[in-house]
């Protein structure tokens, strides 16, 4: 396995660093490539089995955009070739056509021109989330100051009736195109969703049990047990 984590020193915010810690625990040092902001991504010249990028504080938007821009064509090629990619939290915001904040539009990487994003730092949306991806139930946290807009051409997760998707007017959460997955859900996404993690790593060719799999499953089932009772009382926004 070769798993590339893009810019971990900057993209470990809002608990997403725990996904990095988890991957580092599960795989050897040789298998997890940590690419820092001043380095060329490993995927440019080598085969990778999974690319992961987590959330970043907003003030790092520009430096990440600048660093990734020269390699976006290569990233697009890899996605077309079915390379598994997972972006969590606000990482997704960098790959639409633009980000709008206080009426000012900033160009982003345009990997998915169908989507754009609108941010208001003073209005954080928090919610416990429950949804489905095919047969897999997805749980997690939304805690975001922006929403994604555009058509729902590449739906990833279908939010349950008490939750919103990528914006308050849709039940579709995130982007799924070929083996590219992006979601606003943040925090320990891989740990909270062992079934999806197994599926994703399966796409990368990993067939062994997950690290701490039985404990992750117990935690997942425990969460579902209270989320799915009481008519979804325990999910949705605060």
């Amino acid at each position: 396995m070769k798993i590339e984590i893009l810019y971990p020193e900057l993209t470990n915010a809002y608990g997403d660093g725990i996904n990095i810690k988890y991957l580092k625990e599960m795989f050897s040092k040789k298998e997890v490539i940590l690419t820092s902001i001043d380095e060329e991504p490993y995927f440019v010249k080598h085969k990778v089995d999974l690319i992961y990028m987590g959330s970043h504080p907003d003030e790092y938007d520009d430096i990440i955009l600048k660093s990734l821009k020269p390699y976006i064509k290569k990233l697009r090629e890899l996605i077309e070739e079915n390379t598994p990619v997972l972006f969590t939290g606000n990482a997704m915001e960098l790959f639409g056509s633009f980000m709008e904040e206080k009426g000012i539009k900033k160009e982003t990487l345009n990997l998915f021109p169908e989507f754009s994003f609108k941010r208001n730092k003073e209005a954080r949306y928090n919610s416990m989330f429950l949804g489905t991806y095919g047969d897999i139930k997805i749980v997690g946290n939304q805690s975001q100051t922006s929403f994604m807009y555009g058509d729902n051409k590449y739906p990833f997760i279908e939010a349950c009736e008490d939750c919103i998707g990528s914006n308050p007017d849709t039940k579709v959460e995130g982007i799924h195109y070929k083996n590219f997955y992006a979601t606003y859900l943040l925090g320990p996404f891989l740990l909270l969703n062992p079934l999806f993690t197994k599926y994703l790593l399966g796409l990368s060719g990993y067939k062994k049990p997950l690290y701490l799999e039985s404990q992750l499953m117990k935690t997942y089932e425990n969460r579902l047990s209270f989320m799915e009772t009481m008519e979804h009382k325990y999910i949705g926004p605060e």
């Binding site: 608990g15 725990i18 928090n126 416990m128 925090g187 320990p188 209270f226 325990y234 605060e238």
Partner: peptide, 12 residues
């Protein structure tokens, strides 16, 4: 009661 605590901090 609400069971809506964000668990992120526990993992961090």
């Amino acid at each position: 009661k609400s069971k809506k605590e964000t668990v992120t901090w526990i993992y961090e």
